[in-house]
Design a binder for these strands. Sequence first.
DNA 1: TATGAATGAGCCTTCATTCAT
DNA 2: GATGAATGAAGGCTCATTCAT
Lengths: 202, 202, 202, 202
Amino acid sequence: MNIHSYIMARTVDNSKLEGIKQNAIKLIVEKGYGGASISNIAKKAKVAEGYLYRFYKSKEELVSDLLNSKISEIADNLEESIQKSDSFAKIIELLVHGIFEMAEKSSNDIKFLYVMMNDYSFSISSTIKDRIALLCKELNEKGKSLSQIEETISDEEIYMFLVIYPIQFINLRFKKFFGNSKWTNSDIERVIAICNKSLKSN
Amino acid sequence: MNIHSYIMARTVDNSKLEGIKQNAIKLIVEKGYGGASISNIAKKAKVAEGYLYRFYKSKEELVSDLLNSKISEIADNLEESIQKSDSFAKIIELLVHGIFEMAEKSSNDIKFLYVMMNDYSFSISSTIKDRIALLCKELNEKGKSLSQIEETISDEEIYMFLVIYPIQFINLRFKKFFGNSKWTNSDIERVIAICNKSLKSN
Amino acid sequence: MNIHSYIMARTVDNSKLEGIKQNAIKLIVEKGYGGASISNIAKKAKVAEGYLYRFYKSKEELVSDLLNSKISEIADNLEESIQKSDSFAKIIELLVHGIFEMAEKSSNDIKFLYVMMNDYSFSISSTIKDRIALLCKELNEKGKSLSQIEETISDEEIYMFLVIYPIQFINLRFKKFFGNSKWTNSDIERVIAICNKSLKSN
Amino acid sequence: MNIHSYIMARTVDNSKLEGIKQNAIKLIVEKGYGGASISNIAKKAKVAEGYLYRFYKSKEELVSDLLNSKISEIADNLEESIQKSDSFAKIIELLVHGIFEMAEKSSNDIKFLYVMMNDYSFSISSTIKDRIALLCKELNEKGKSLSQIEETISDEEIYMFLVIYPIQFINLRFKKFFGNSKWTNSDIERVIAICNKSLKSN
DNA sequence: TATGAATGAGCCTTCATTCAT
DNA sequence: GATGAATGAAGGCTCATTCAT
């Protein structure tokens, strides 16, 4: 095997794996975990049923990995937002925009996150949970040291507003609970404003 | 047949249906919709598998009814809170306490609500959705007429804070995401304070 | 209990049993043996499910009895036709008319007979089978002694023409295999003519 | 993979599907549609239960296909008999022999046909029904143009004698209604003679 | 007598998973 | 690597039958 074919193989491979992942997410969102059969996922990803088992040893592992990887994206987003900013307001802005971008780019991803995070049968790996908790703590401390967030705010509340609130908002829109689906820039600004108002010291 | 046995019969009957409902909720929370098999539900409820079909014509109907009935409890709670109060702060207080009480009385119910509301494969009946939207609107108008909530607040945001936030908070605790499970009275007061701060005019 | 109520009871009783029988026949014809559930039969007969088991110890027994009783009607018809006639042609005429009348009076009965006779999972009691065979033999002998049927005709052929042929013809019509459903008097005459032509000596 | 194993693979494969078909037919004949469970069919065919669903999307489809395919054999038989013959008597001879051969080769097939054709819950595809009706018409016209069958004979009567009569006769024998099971060559000749006598002009 | 609640075996079907090719 | 035939456990659901009332 020469370099060329090696690169080809890798390319083909990754696109196939990516197809599996995306269709798994899509089907789980649409039909739930039980409704997303391996057979359907494979069919939509144009891959043989058995192929999937080269990467994951079970359906559960596939979904678990997917959940952890998508949550990690949120954590990455959080981390970057912290690193890139010097004020608490800036962090919120970056983070919330980041989450909305994720929703814009792939609505299924954010729906998937929404569905899977709010569940007792699947759970996020404790490593990632710890990472997120730590980032919330760091953010909280930073905000307080800058006197930009209220003293009484807990790490948990940081998480509630910066992670849960945007995800819930976006999915409420997807579900058209209050009629309007999707969102405008002013909706995003509004979410940012709410977070600011709720957390910041006055 | 005397009165006693009559009452017994009725009691036994209702307790069977109640057992089905509660064990369905419990199993769905623990294992998800797919993981909660009719066979398991029946076994735990100490009832024959087929018996369940006297009340519901399918598993889906059972779960749908359960979801709608639990959501209705929240709506009832909301409605009562509005009726019993004369200030916006009082409404929030009653409502949030009501939700925590529900969680206290039956943690599975609030977990079930959390799991099922955050899902794309099951949905709340539009009647109940409309009812809740209307109550949020009413509440918003009332709050604004009393100048107790900010002018920019939407009905949707009322819903986000008064319904979503408490449910998310409670389940975050159940999941021990930030270490501590359960909650104290001061946690409840804190949730109320957050809602007030976030919504009220200043 | 006085005579009046006794008669009443019997009357009610028989009508209920009759309802069970007729609805069983109807449902079996429409949906097959498996599709005719005791629950459905009872519902249509306006009787409790368990009531049926006062008369028959199983669903199979019910259907078996029904089959034998309807076959017996054919046998009775055959017997009467023989007794009432002095020529072979007259017998055929009476018998065929009798079968068409049965179909006219209750299409379900003749359909039921058609469905159940052509089956390997249910069978006619050997007593009735013997009775019919005997009647065919008697008829054959009578026809031959009168030199009205061909010498080579067997008892079996008598049965094929006098019982099977009319039943098959009627049901072919019910099924509209050749377009036309139901029949006219001339269709009946035609069946009689065919039987005569096929069996009689020339 | 060599040619031999290739052939083997194909053989095994077809034999599995064939096993499913034959055992389905056998069990339906023995126990009726409801009594022939997928589980039993699969067990007898030495195949996993689920395997069946690679070929048919439901039990009903399996049985429907089987019925239509067996009826088609009769239609093929009819068609060939017409094509190969120049006289009406020859057609009858070929056709009746063909049906008896089918019964000889696989008694279950003819029993299955007998059971399923005489039923109101399953029905032959209208395409095949039309084809048979057309063949009967063709046969009738041919016979009449040759002055070999009576003017009054209808297409329906052609069907009654050439298709129904032999099938009914064979199954009457299988059921030993008149004692004797199976048949001899002279029985076959007798069926042919009856058909001729009944239909032909004199 | 008559009911219908309650049972549980068994049905059809789906689907995660394995493995020979 | 990649396929998809084949498996069989388990799922939802139906239904004949029993029995307390």
